[in-house]
Amino acid sequence: MTPHFGLPEFGFLLRGLQWTVLLTLVAFAGGCTAGLAVALLRTCGHKGVEWITRIYIGIFQGTPLLLQLFVVYYGLALTGLKLDAFVAVAIGFTVNASAFLGEIWRGAIQAVPRGQTEAAMALGLHYSSRMRDIVLPQAIRISLPATIGYLVQLIKGTSLAAIVGFIELARAGQIVSNQTFQPLLVFGVVGAMYFILCWPLSWWGSRMEARLALASQR
């Protein structure tokens, strides 16, 4: 007798959702930190360093995320470094996110008018103050819609973590569906959960974009 989709099954999906959210938060926080470093190195003015970060971004944007997760989970295991599935996918997503966010913010930093940096230099401000006080506050504002857009991609992208056996929302849905033979219902619920996470973010992002467009008209 196969179980029907009920409260216990729903609870299982909720736990999957929890892991999806947790993985997203860790990957996003890690990706923001590393991505900021990538963006700063990418715009530092030193040819060699800029070249290296360009290659770094190229590698992680130019290969499938799935492959990167394989390398971190199975590849590192071969070298004797056996990582917990969550740790492995968290590392994989963080590195991947750092490349994408780094490139988004590189564009935003370069979109801040050159005159802002010149005025700051003329006032005798050093690099750290120029970045922290002048360029980054403006760059973050410029990049906010794209950053939120990437966050939405990341939430949905975490479903790839299932490939190394990590049970997040999509994988949980697959398990429940296999047990209950009610794929339409189960994946409908799973889809709704993703939607509830992503849609408000998308909405916020496009509102932010509209507001920025308005501000730049003034």
Binding site: G115, Q116, A119, A120, L123, S129
Partner: peptide, 22 residues
Amino acid sequence: SFNLFPHMTVLQNCMLAPIRAR
């Protein structure tokens, strides 16, 4: 083109460099 810092008030524009550089 003036190059004032748009995300700061007039007062903050004038205070930043003395605080940071001096």
